[in-house]
Simulated assay, not measured.
Amino acid sequence: MKTLMYCLVFILLEINCSAGDRNDLEKDKKDFIKTTEMIRSAFARGDVAMITSLHHPNVIKAFGGNNYVDGRDAMVKGLIQTFNSVKLEFTENKIENTLFNGDTAVETSIFTMKATPKNGRPISYSRGRAMVIYIRYKDSPTGWASIREMAQAAPDEK
């Protein structure tokens, strides 16, 4: 009888621990979604400080060709130069896949960015596919920060 009682207690503890893990994953997902929404919103406002707070100091971004950004300071410099001449906003952000693995999240998405030049030139659009790796980062307002990003041309629309 004691053995059965111990087994039941063990099973109940295991179920409770598993439920706790699911609750943490749900919170992680909500915080993660908030992170990606905050990044896109900050781009639309040209808010370099907010964008910076959601990126790890050792962030690396590879956008093809010679467009390679190594470190948050280089990212900030590029953002300031960009926002001085254009307003950027995401007009599309279709999540293809998100993977959570402990303190890491990997997301692939199809995006479209609208660039509105401040000098009155015509608006342009860039469409691409990005893979972004996020890690838990205590100094981020959401607890997540982008640390690696690669982008390429998006597939043709069907």
Rank of each mutant, 00 (worst) to 15 (best):
E89L: 14
E89I: 09
F90Y: 15
E92R: 11
E92I: 10
E92M: 09
I95L: 11
I95H: 09
I95E: 15
E96F: 07
E96A: 07
E96V: 11
E96Y: 10
N97I: 05
N97Y: 11
T98M: 02
T98C: 04
T98L: 03
T98I: 12
L99H: 12
L99Q: 14
L99F: 11
L99N: 13
F100H: 10
F100Y: 11
F100S: 03
F100V: 05
N101K: 12
N101P: 05
G102H: 03
G102C: 02
D103V: 04
T104S: 09
T104D: 05
T104C: 09
A105H: 01
A105L: 02
A105K: 01
V106N: 06
V106Y: 05
V106K: 04
V106W: 04
E107V: 08
E107R: 10
T108R: 08
T108P: 03
T108A: 05
S109V: 11
I110P: 04
I110A: 06
F111T: 03
F111L: 06
F111P: 01
F111Q: 02
T112Q: 13
T112W: 08
M113D: 08
K114C: 15
A115F: 13
A115W: 12
A115D: 13
T116E: 10
P117F: 12
P117W: 10
K118V: 12
K118D: 15
N119S: 13
N119C: 07
N119Q: 09
G120Y: 07
G120K: 07
R121N: 13
R121W: 13
P122H: 14
P122E: 14
P122D: 15
I123H: 05
I123D: 14
S124W: 11
S124I: 15
S124Q: 13
Y125S: 14
Y125I: 12
Y125K: 15
S126D: 13
R127E: 14
G128Y: 04
G128F: 06
G128M: 03
G128H: 06
R129K: 14
R129M: 09
R129N: 04
A130C: 08
A130E: 09
M131Q: 08
M131C: 10
I133V: 13
I133N: 03
I133W: 04
Y134M: 04
Y134W: 07
Y134K: 00
Y134P: 00
I135L: 06
R136E: 08
R136N: 04
R136M: 05
Y137G: 00
Y137H: 08
Y137N: 00
K138N: 14
K138T: 12
K138W: 10
D139R: 13
D139V: 04
D139N: 14
S140C: 02
S140Y: 01
S140Q: 01
P141I: 00
P141Q: 00
P141L: 00
P141R: 00
T142Q: 02
T142K: 00
T142I: 01
G143H: 02
W144T: 04
A145D: 05
A145T: 07
A145W: 03
S146K: 06
I147Y: 12
I147R: 05
I147G: 01
I147D: 01
I147S: 03
I147Q: 02
R148I: 04
E149H: 07
E149N: 07
E149F: 02
E149Q: 10
M150K: 05
M150R: 07
M150A: 11
M150L: 10
